[in-house]
Amino acid sequence: MRIAVVQIQSGADILANLGRIEESARQAAAEGAKLLVYPEASSQAFGTGRLDRDAQEIDGEFAGRLRELAEELRVVIVAGMFAPADTVEREGKTINRVYNLALVTGQGQHLGYRKIHTYDAFNYAESDTVHPGEELVTFQVEGHTLGVAVCYDVRFPEQFKALATKGAKGIVLPTSWADGPDKLPQWRTLTAARALDCTSWIIAAGQARPGGEVEGGTPSGPTGIGHSCVVDPNGQRVAEAGYGEDTLILDIDLDVVDKVRKILPVLGAGKF
């Protein structure tokens, strides 16, 4: 199956971000890609304003236009967005929380995965403004089952194993991975480890690094480190982008997963 991993740097303007997605999607589809994976927060970048004010349901304009585009191009598009969730009281403040959602649309599907593991780490509490999801999501591309996770989920191997047990041969991973000391080595290690844990392809699309390579290795907040990647079920990195905007287009063999799982039958074999 031919895939496109599209590493963009989204901004504050949802319509402008839509335009960039549409342009790149047409280019990728013209090159034969059937699965197009975009970063977390593709609709609106973190740090560009109140997410709750611009959050949309998956029948709203952002998701609706991507649905039309995916059906026109006969592809599946995965892209990060934000949807309204609930209202909570925190320290005397009323907060309208959102879902950090990965939209999956195309080939007769239109659904959203709500990020399960909120980024409550490194002195930051995403759960203050983001409602954690609860359900695993799988979808179909060209008759193959894939799963979906978002960014911080990559630190939780059980989720990836559960998706593989549900039949996923590949797991798409939209991210906005924060840059900083040791963050790139962690990213590379975690994506390889998750591929090995669940003997599946990992297809990870990250936000491009603001400032590019010049700023690489310094703290960026949750605005991206780039380095989108594709990792095979043996943990080998078969493609990786750099810090800047880029598109990886490549063919992956999802059937190889069956061979790997036969040789390395780790799914369901644990004792704990």
Rank of each mutant, 00 (worst) to 15 (best):
10 S>V: 07
27 Q>K: 11
156 F>N: 08
18 L>T: 07
252 I>R: 09
94 T>I: 13
159 Q>D: 13
247 T>M: 09
105 T>P: 02
105 T>M: 08
94 T>G: 06
198 C>A: 15
30 A>W: 10
45 A>G: 12
95 I>C: 02
34 K>L: 07
3 I>F: 04
139 F>W: 01
121 A>Q: 09
263 I>S: 14
240 E>A: 10
6 V>Y: 01
207 Q>A: 15
177 W>L: 03
31 E>A: 12
17 N>G: 07
126 E>Y: 06
188 R>K: 14
36 L>W: 00
262 K>F: 12
31 E>H: 10
223 T>R: 15
95 I>S: 00
84 P>S: 01
58 I>S: 06
149 A>V: 14
270 G>Q: 10
45 A>V: 12
119 Y>K: 09
177 W>F: 03
30 A>D: 09
113 Y>Q: 04
7 Q>M: 02
41 A>D: 11
216 G>Y: 14
14 I>Q: 11
6 V>H: 00
239 A>R: 07
78 V>T: 05
153 D>F: 00
157 P>T: 07
156 F>V: 09
114 R>Y: 14
40 E>Y: 09
214 V>E: 15
269 A>S: 14
142 E>S: 11
58 I>T: 11
63 A>L: 08
226 G>Q: 01
255 D>G: 12
73 L>A: 10
138 T>C: 05
39 P>Y: 04
61 E>G: 07
37 V>S: 02
16 A>W: 13
1 M>D: 07
129 T>G: 01
224 G>C: 10
186 Q>D: 13
163 L>T: 08
166 K>W: 12
48 T>W: 04
260 V>Y: 10
44 Q>T: 14
79 A>W: 11
253 D>C: 03
100 N>E: 14
271 K>V: 13
111 L>F: 03
106 G>H: 00
31 E>W: 07
63 A>F: 03
269 A>M: 11
181 P>D: 05
102 A>Q: 01
182 D>G: 05
139 F>Q: 03
11 G>Q: 06
131 H>V: 11
89 E>F: 01
228 S>N: 06
119 Y>M: 10
162 A>P: 00
140 Q>K: 13
122 F>P: 07
199 T>Y: 12
192 A>W: 00
111 L>T: 05
123 N>T: 08
154 V>C: 10
253 D>R: 06
189 T>H: 15
24 S>V: 13
226 G>T: 00
23 E>P: 02
45 A>S: 15
153 D>V: 06
60 G>Q: 01
152 Y>H: 07
113 Y>F: 12
44 Q>H: 15
128 D>Q: 12
214 V>A: 15
29 A>D: 03
133 G>I: 04
137 V>A: 02
57 E>G: 12
18 L>H: 08
239 A>N: 04
164 A>L: 00
142 E>F: 10
49 G>K: 04
213 E>S: 03
209 R>F: 10
191 T>W: 05
270 G>S: 13
241 A>P: 05
64 G>T: 03
58 I>L: 15
162 A>Y: 01
210 P>G: 11
56 Q>Y: 01
104 V>Q: 05
247 T>S: 06
126 E>T: 07
62 F>A: 04
265 P>F: 11
22 E>H: 11
182 D>L: 08
108 G>I: 03
148 V>R: 01
143 G>Y: 00
195 A>N: 05
60 G>M: 02
68 E>C: 08
1 M>P: 08
1 M>A: 14
23 E>D: 13
66 L>P: 03
85 A>M: 03
